[in-house]
């Protein structure tokens, strides 16, 4: 089983559009996993049916049971996160500020504070409009994106891939350089980096490549909108060269990207053939040469 993970560091580079296009090309040959769970949006292109839905719980949040509270104030005293306040003479936990350290519950003399495992989101197993299998999730507002929901999505995708006897999992990874992206990358066979030739694109590419290096993962890069700043594209290629990361393809600036999205389609399903040929070639290169 091979895992192809698409990441970008910076948002707005076209990562999700490109991943969805790969998924359409591969159809039912692969299992698709959307690990970009904080404001996930690949479902807008793949139209999954949300056939199977599970609730996801993680972390801890304190809750004060009012009846037993003696208003001693110990909890307020030890909380370092300003999560406990007195409203109408009652001690109340603000769940958005509570980090779930559990300290208040430990010092409460009447054992009136309970730690509850909050619901932080949902995850789904679906059939997409192109008859592929997709595992995806939705993180709740204000939830702690610790990487655990990402790990769950990946695990389910692995299980399904094995059960269906498929060879490849295609993963839309998380942005940034924190815990969720580390979770997305764990177990990767090949990493596809999507970037754009902008000062911020290069800046974030360099940060994310440090991570890839730490994990010793093979990677290749796609430069989107490469003609928008040919000078910056050259700088990116020089950076890739130095770090032995092959360039998979360059995509030109093309407004068909958003035109396709508006129709709920991927860029390989529209009339304009410029992008779709490049994407198809890139997918061939990735699956035949690198994985």
């Amino acid at each position: 089983m091979k895992e192809i993970v698409v990441i970008s560091g910076k948002g707005g580079t076209g990562k999700t559009s490109i991943t969805a296009a790969f998924a359409v090309l591969a159809g039912s040959d692969i299992v698709l996993a959307d690990c970009d769970v904080d404001a996930a949006d690949m479902h807008l292109l793949m139209k999954p049916d949300f056939a199977q839905k599970e609730t996801f719980y993680s972390g801890e949040t304190a809750r004060i049971i009012q009846n037993n509270c003696t208003s001693c104030g110990k909890c307020l005293e030890v909380c370092r996160f300003n999560a406990i306040s007195i409203i109408h003479d009652q001690y109340i936990v603000n769940p958005l500020s509570c980090e779930g350290c559990g300290y208040c519950a430990r010092v409460c003399p009447t054992e009136t504070i309970v730690n509850e495992i909050p619901k932080i989101g949902e995850w789904y197993i679906s059939k997409t409009r192109t008859q592929g299998t997709m595992v995806h999730a939705k993180l709740n507002i204000g939830a702690d994106n610790s990487g655990k929901l990402v790990a769950k999505v990946k695990n389910e995708a692995r299980q399904i891939t094995e059960n269906l006897g498929k060879e490849i999992i295609l993963i839309d990874g998380s942005p940034g350089i924190g815990c969720p992206v580390v979770s997305s990358l764990s177990g990767a066979s090949f990493v596809v980096l999507v970037t754009e030739p902008t000062v911020s694109g290069l800046h974030d590419l360099i940060r994310v490549c440090q991570l890839i290096k730490n994990f010793n993962l093979p990677a290749g890069c796609m430069i989107n909108k490469s003609d928008i700043n040919p000078q910056k594209s050259k700088e990116i290629m020089a950076f890739l060269n130095e770090n032995n990361i092959p360039l998979i393809t360059e995509l030109p600036y093309n407004e068909q990207f958003s035109a396709a999205m508006t129709m709920g389609k991927t860029i390989v399903e529209i009339e304009d053939k410029q992008l779709s040929e490049l994407i198809a070639k890139a997918w061939n290169t990735i699956t035949n040469k690198y994985v």
Binding site: D38, S258, G264
Partner: peptide
């Protein structure tokens, strides 16, 4: 929509939300 954005915005007087006119 997770913890960092809550921390950054929770004591602001006003929020400007930037978006693009696409389904995403």
């Amino acid at each position: 929509t997770s913890c960092p954005v809550i921390e950054a915005t929770k004591d602001s007087d006003f929020i400007i939300l930037v978006t693009e006119p696409t389904p995403f």
